[in-house]
Amino acid sequence: MKAAQFDSFGEPTEVLRCIDRPKPTPAGGEALVRMLASPINPSDLMTVRGEYGSLPDPPAVPGYEGVGVVESGGGLLGLALRGKRVAVLNGAGGNWAEYVTLPANRCVPLPGDLSLPQAAMFFVNPATAYLLTAKVLAVPKGAWLLQTAAGSSLGQMVIRLGVHRGFRTVNVVRRAEQAETLRGLGADAVVTFDENRESPADLAAKVKEATGGAVIRHAIDPVAGATGGAAVGCLGAGGRLISFGTLSGAPLAVPARHLLFHGLSVEGFYLGKWMDAAGLPTKLRVMRTVGKLLSAGVIANDVGESFPLDRISEAVAVAEQPGRGGKAWLTIGA
């Protein structure tokens, strides 16, 4: 079978290649899935670079999410899933291949009305956006939520969820040309911030002006570094920031005085750990809710260009282009 593999950690365009590997055989309790498509997420590329929180031993195949059809499986669940199109929630990676094996309980049946790319991107961004806003922070109706990297696919989902659930969003972006698109989605306020040219005080002043001096007690940040630290400085007393990424590659720079004197808190969120800790009924409710939100068009993945596995170097290069216009994804099987 074909697979995109890296033999050592490094730049994805340099170390990833399409190779032939043996077709895997499922063990007890596992399902064999014929993969149809998989997105190229930042977590995948961080894994290839050796920068993610949990790393495989090379040689390895990336890919934490995707969509496929269950061909075989052991146990009652594996038998029940046979022939079904499923979201492949592969915490160990391996989805950038024609076939993959994983625990059958990591295969989630999908609504039939989802397109192939929407099905491939069903889990990571939609579930993260929903859980952060509705469960972890539980942003109340009418309250403000600040988010960095607001122009990303996940950031756009948060804006749509704000419109749907009635909370307001102040959205931090690096490029001014993103503002019109975000306002069209329902963003209440959009501000630009470049950590290389501006100070945290500059961001706080912009946010204050854009929101009419509103008190902000909820924030989410996938960037870390100086941008994440500046976001903390925009919070009012008792505010919470949830850090869920390290796109900058730098540590989250938070002055201790914010935490000591203003009662602010910074917490981490990792979707895989949250799902592992949740009971089965909770997981099913989350997946059903996300499926309904996608099917109803409340949230949608921003779909970009697709590539076959044998163009993997080109695919990952496009995935990291600024302003690329949608998430790049891999078409793997028919």
Rank of each mutant, 00 (worst) to 15 (best):
S243M: 12
W96N: 00
R49D: 04
E71I: 12
Y52C: 04
T25I: 09
W144R: 06
L145E: 06
G333E: 04
S72K: 09
G325P: 02
V136I: 15
V207N: 01
D7R: 14
E195L: 01
H262R: 15
A119M: 07
A328M: 05
F9D: 12
E209F: 00
G94H: 06
E30I: 07
L146W: 00
A226Q: 14
V124D: 06
L154R: 07
G50D: 07
W274R: 14
A138V: 06
N196E: 09
L260V: 14
E320A: 13
T101P: 02
M1T: 12
G297L: 13
G268H: 05
R217Y: 05
V303L: 11
L309G: 12
G233F: 05
C234S: 04
M287K: 07
N196R: 12
E314C: 05
G213I: 04
M1I: 06
L309D: 13
A119W: 01
A129N: 07
F6H: 11
G291R: 11
R257M: 14
V303Q: 11
A92S: 14
G10S: 12
R217N: 14
L203Q: 01
Y64L: 15
S152W: 04
G78A: 08
G213S: 03
G166S: 03
Q5F: 07
V163A: 14
R324M: 10
P24R: 02
S306L: 04
N41T: 12
P322Q: 08
F122H: 14
N105R: 13
V61S: 02
T128K: 08
G28T: 11
P59Q: 10
P109D: 01
G75D: 15
N301C: 15
L77Q: 08
E30S: 07
P39W: 09
T13Q: 15
L79I: 08
N90P: 01
P140A: 13
A97Q: 01
R197F: 00
L55S: 02
N125D: 10
M275G: 00
F167E: 10
Y52I: 06
L294W: 04
E98Y: 00
A127Y: 05
G245L: 09
D194T: 00
S38H: 03
A150N: 02
V223W: 08
L330K: 09
P251S: 08
R257I: 14
A204G: 05
L185W: 12
F244W: 13
P26E: 12
L110H: 06
A187G: 09
D44M: 08
A176R: 05
Y99N: 00
E314L: 09
L271H: 02
N125M: 08
Y64W: 12
D7C: 12
V223C: 10
T246W: 13
P24V: 03
V173N: 03
A214T: 05
V100H: 01
A189F: 05
L79Q: 15
G112S: 12
R160L: 11
V61H: 02
N301M: 13
D20E: 15
A317Y: 03
L280M: 13
P109M: 04
R165T: 01
G142E: 07
P251I: 08
P24H: 01
G74Q: 11
G155D: 07
